[in-house]
Computed example of a mutant assay.
Amino acid sequence: MAEPKEEPFLDDIDDADAEEHDVLNEDHSDEEVELDALRAERDSLKDKWMRALADAENARKRSDKDRREAERYGSTRLARDLLPVYDNLHRALAAAEDGEDKPSEALLEGVNLTLRELMNIFEKHGVSIIIPEVGDRFDPEEHEAMFEAPVPGTKKGEIIQVSAHGFMLFDRLLRPAQVGVSSNPG
């Protein structure tokens, strides 16, 4: 029987293949690591870009909102400065009606026209008047209690006197109506 021949050549090939395989794996491994690093950098840059885009959009929306509010409520200081003019004209008319001396018709007409013109300007610019009536319920959102007093025939929290009208600029309170409130216990 013949003995099988050893083939040292095949062993050498296997060792050579293994070394080549290791070198290829190292190259492949280095490429994978580099590729993974590039992917991570890409993902990081994409995330930063998306955040910057969202920040820019939020800034645009915020500036649009600020611009709209400035257009709508920019006249708040002027409107507040004009409220005493309304109060004084209103008091002048009330004094003329209640007074013993009759003022001239021309003076009354002039004050009335001035008050009406002021009201037209208020309306044009979104200022509305809060005119509470005696007997209305006190609302802290629109009224300011100047005093409390027990008045017979009233309920607690009812308006018993109106000292000054209130004003709104669109949906914002410029000045609450100044009122007296009943403190009767029920």
Results as ranks from 00 to 15, higher is better:
E7M: 12
A18I: 06
E20M: 11
H28A: 14
H28G: 13
L38S: 10
R39C: 07
R39P: 02
K48A: 10
W49P: 01
A54R: 11
A56K: 10
R62Q: 07
S63M: 08
D64T: 01
K65Q: 11
D66L: 14
R67Q: 11
R68S: 08
A70L: 03
Y73R: 01
L78Y: 08
L78E: 12
A79L: 02
R80I: 09
D87H: 04
R91K: 15
A92K: 00
A94C: 08
E100T: 14
S104Y: 00
E105S: 15
A106I: 07
L113W: 06
T114P: 00
L115F: 11
L115I: 10
E117F: 06
E117Y: 07
N120W: 06
I121Y: 05
E123V: 09
E123F: 01
E123L: 05
K124I: 03
V127E: 00
P132R: 00
G135P: 06
F138E: 15
D139Q: 09
E144C: 07
A149R: 11
P150Q: 13
T154A: 12
E158T: 06
Q161S: 15
Q161V: 08
A164T: 11
H165D: 15
D171R: 02
L173S: 10
L173Q: 13
L173P: 08
R175E: 15
N184F: 02
G186E: 14
